[in-house]
Write a protein that binds this DNA or RNA. Structure first.
Lengths: 335, 335
DNA sequence: TAAAATTAGTAAAACGATTAACTAAATGTG
DNA sequence: CACATTTAGTTAATCGTTTTACTAATTTTA
């Protein structure tokens, strides 16, 4: 499709000025007399002229566009982060190119390449698991990248904002331990990512303080949807029917877990206690209301964008930000 | 930030060929001998060279990027549509520039301008309420736009995919009427948009068939979040405590509505029946499980992208697609 | 009033690809 | 062998801006 649009030259001709003048009027890059300026603006308005930004980008080597690469999608925590980033980008006059890699490392690398070639000014990346050393190709050229929510511990030179997932795992587990639970199932969806790893470390540390040995079979993976939560509960209870509590790592799985527990005619929190991650909106009307431990998606999102902006404006910018978790105590934990 | 990247010329020089040859190798636009091709590819690989797409776009007048402009965000129906569109775009080799207008008409218009100037190949738009005649500036130049989910009835020449919201309103209302309800509250969030209007017409038509006069005060607006749902319920029950059923237009509001109903110590469905829109994942574990009427977000999303592609490839493409609603009957309706 | 400084605008060279039109060498054909 | 065709690659124009370096006219200054 050829879009034979109006160009700056056309505007210039019609306003009897040079293209340079039109450009200066549009960008306020030089003082142009009131009369000329108005003449130009009038022609622009009349034709609904908007400058071609491919040309502009090409010339300026910048696009006022940022890439946002997430590794998974419809879980309310991620959605809200995306929303916050979009909002912040908008405020700052940026656009956002959104890509979901679906936890595919290969695709992630291709995406970063593509976005880079699209002249985005920087990328916010929530990495998949797996080796992301390829990122060093970009960072060594100082191409601005910041890591969102997850990080890769071997890569130190990329700014990042994450939650304090160690603390999160620790707090949630501690809370359940304090209620007297000894066998606590840990249900997660993505292996080998910092969020899971750190929460597990927190979980282990809490157990250690209670002198309870860590049992690997209580650390169970499931598909990050409702079904995954149900299956994980089933799996865990089959392994050991003494398990009396679950700590579930995302909202859909939490729903699945509850649904399975109810299906098994077990009572929450009397037979099984439960803490879920993230404050999804239905938590408080579910019976019993769910106790959640959470991180602030909006803050994480906005911070990520601000970091990216800093990195764009200052190649030496470097910071690792870790936000603390908080807990909304309702009934499912046994309180 | 200047990114002094490697250009095609650099690759050409190093491979001892012309830039044209490099381009041909990359794009397979001309037969190049095996030996030259490999030489070029080797140099490209060695430098991690990726063509500058600002230049490419400028030259080709196309960007393989589509704009996606939504009017609101974190409600699972919209999220899933976005997800589906992103997925389809990816399959088709497109990228997506995502903007949320937050129901702001002015901003919507600015956004369309901006995206247009960014050389997107087309735009998928879920319009705000209000006058969108400005779109005609684009359609008359055959700039590809398709309307998603909502439409504006005065604009006929833009392809669109929506749900059959008349049927949806009709079916939901009918269902409640069949359970003997006479006074049914209709809780919505966005006025003057086709989705609301059409559902209302369906609601009215159903009432008409039962010879029940339409009462405008049962048609109540609320903020599209949990709180909005609670407030609307409160508002309606204050107006008329004979109201025995609610039809709620989005997931978060449904949750708010339930929460308020429970707070008032009313039983669902005995005292108050309820049908919500959209199949959010917690519907079935809420007590009682919620009856939902819904539209298929994935189908709508994918269809929208396919339509856009059609429109991009054929300026005369024109179609209005309307997808039928379906109902998931659980307990909250009184079944 | 002559020189200097300011103002208002322009010409033309980028930016980095694609692609139509061309050339030169190699191969095929009668 | 002479001519046509195919193959492999190149040259240079082009896309639509921005921006540096320039000019010409006007105003200020001494």
């Amino acid at each position: 499709m050829k879009k034979e649009g109006i160009t700056m030259k056309d505007i210039a001709r019609e306003a009897n000025v040079s293209a340079a003048t039109v450009s200066h009027v549009i960008n306020n890059t030089k003082h142009i007399s009131e009369v000329t300026r108005n003449k130009v603006l009038e022609v622009i308005k009349r034709h609904h002229y908007v400058p071609n930004s491919a040309a502009k980008n090409l010339r300026q080597q910048s696009s006022k566009t940022a890439g946002l690469v997430v590794s998974s999608f419809p879980d309310s925590f991620v959605t809200e982060m995306i929303f916050a980033i979009e909002e912040r980008a908008k405020e700052m006059g940026y656009n956002l190119l959104l890509v979901n890699t679906n936890e595919d490392r290969e695709y992630e690398e291709k995406t970063i390449n593509l976005l880079h070639s699209k002249q985005v000014d920087g990328i916010i990346l929530s990495p998949t698991s797996g080796d992301i050393q390829y990122l060093q190709n970009y960072t060594k050229d100082n191409f601005p990248i910041v890591m969102l929510n997850r990080y890769e511990s071997t890569i130190k030179n990329i700014p990042r904002v994450t939650g304090d997932n160690f603390q999160l795992g620790y707090d949630a587990t501690m809370h359940l331990l304090q209620h007297g639970h000894q066998k606590i199932g840990f249900i997660y969806s993505y292996p080998n990512v910092s969020t899971t790893d750190d929460r597990l470390k927190g979980y282990q540390e809490a157990l250690r303080q209670y002198n309870i040995p860590y049992q690997e079979e209580f650390f169970v993976q499931g598909y990050a949807k409702v079904k995954g939560g149900s299956d994980a509960v089933q799996d865990l209870l089959t392994k050991d029917n003494q398990i009396s509590a679950f700590f579930v790592q995302n909202d859909l799985m939490t729903i699945g877990a509850i649904s399975k527990i109810k299906e098994l005619k077990l009572k929450i929190p009397d037979d099984i206690a439960l803490i879920g991650f993230g404050d999804f909106s239905s938590s408080h009307i579910i019976d019993p209301p769910i106790t959640n431990i959470l991180l602030p998606p909006e803050t994480i999102g906005k911070t990520a964008f601000d970091m990216l902006l800093n990195k764009i404006n200052n190649p030496n910018y470097m910071k690792h930000i870790e936000l603390p978790p908080s807990m909304i105590v309702r009934k499912s934990c046994g309180c």
